[in-house]
Design a protein around this nucleic acid. Structure first.
Lengths: 185, 185
DNA sequence: CTCCGATCGCTCGGTTCCGAGTATTTGCGG
DNA sequence: CCGCAAATACTCGGAACCGAGCGATCGGAG
């Protein structure tokens, strides 16, 4: 059980039993697909895995018309406990992560001073746009639900701001010569 | 070609031809394994993929003693170009990422106010430690190589600082009641 | 009433990932 | 000079991932 999508599923079932398709739909409706990579294929794999572990159980399988059956899953007692344990662990222990931008920055030199500035400028622009959007949906959401259910957006905003700040600073450093390009390249 | 490890490989071969094992060793020596997930299995897969694309080519296969053969790979002209294109793309376009902490924070509510504070405290502690370590290795590295080759550490530090700041703030908000827990739970 | 696009709900299978295992060689403490 | 840990170099196969596809149904425009 590594896939965080499993955590999302447990979190949903905490409220009420659901069938996989409904899980995906709900997750997307609530905008949680910004925090969890929800793809149909993985979802069914994850549900199967949660079954194997005994953290969820099939409650009933309903057949409406001639459509594929829907199997409705609910949380077990163990699942309820494991869910909190899971959240707790991920909050406590920073995991080694490998964001693509970190990789790219490791080879920023390859772009040359002019190229680097140009590319960073475009990133900055895009970051500003996505920040605007996040702030908007945060405002909207706050009118519907308590702040606690929106903290993850606040976190995302904060991180994006930090990145934007850094990008802008580096642009300045390159242009002012505080970040020189060594020789060749 | 999705795996960023491929980018790392190209970046290394830019300097000189290498065999896979040496790539892994060099990557780790330089601490680049903080920016790239370097696992042996994936490495050989990635190298094979780069071959398929024609971005690298086998230069020679040497046999020393009775050890497994080492196949030494070098960059092609195409590979050199694709490398910069790759870096450029990743710098320009923020990719949707799914850090585990973001997932966890989405369900912070599940821990209850006291539990959340406790867990966040521990995270803060660990973040401070890892920041200390990063700052140290940044200082050390700066004495050996130009700043350009260490910018990715500066980025990592900046992001960790932002996260730490946010975590501390949330702890404060929970304790002061600015982030209340709605009803039950 | 009939056609078409959207929605429903899931399966399938090809890629990708990656850790455990394998087999040799070198270095070095005793 | 013996033995054992560390380094050298890669292979293998199971697991995870995920998008394309599939077959059905529903809603509503004409």
């Amino acid at each position: 059980m590594k896939n965080p999508l499993g955590m999302a599923v447990l979190g949903l079932l905490l409220e009420s039993p659901l069938h996989p398709h409904a899980m995906a739909a709900t997750l997307r409706e609530r905008g949680m697909d910004r925090a969890f990579k929800v793809t149909t294929g993985s979802l069914y794999d994850v549900v199967r895995a949660l079954m194997r572990e005994g953290w969820i159980e099939a409650r009933e399988t309903v057949k409406v018309g001639a459509r594929p059956e829907r199997t409705i899953y609910g949380l077990t007692e163990v699942g309820r406990e494991e869910f909190t344990r899971w959240v707790d662990r991920l909050v406590r222990e920073p995991q080694p992560e490998f964001p693509k931008f970190l990789s790219a920055v490791s080879y920023l030199g390859a772009l040359g001073p002019a190229g680097a500035v140009e590319a960073l400028r475009e990133r900055a622009e895009r970051l500003r746009a996505s920040l605007e959007e996040m702030r908007g949906s945060h405002r909207d959401a706050l009118e519907q639900v308590p702040r606690l259910f929106v903290v993850e957006v606040e976190y995302a905003v904060r991180m994006a701001e930090a990145e934007l700040g850094w990008v802008e600073e580096i642009i300045g450093d390159v242009e002012s010569g505080r970040l020189p390009w060594p020789e060749e390249s």
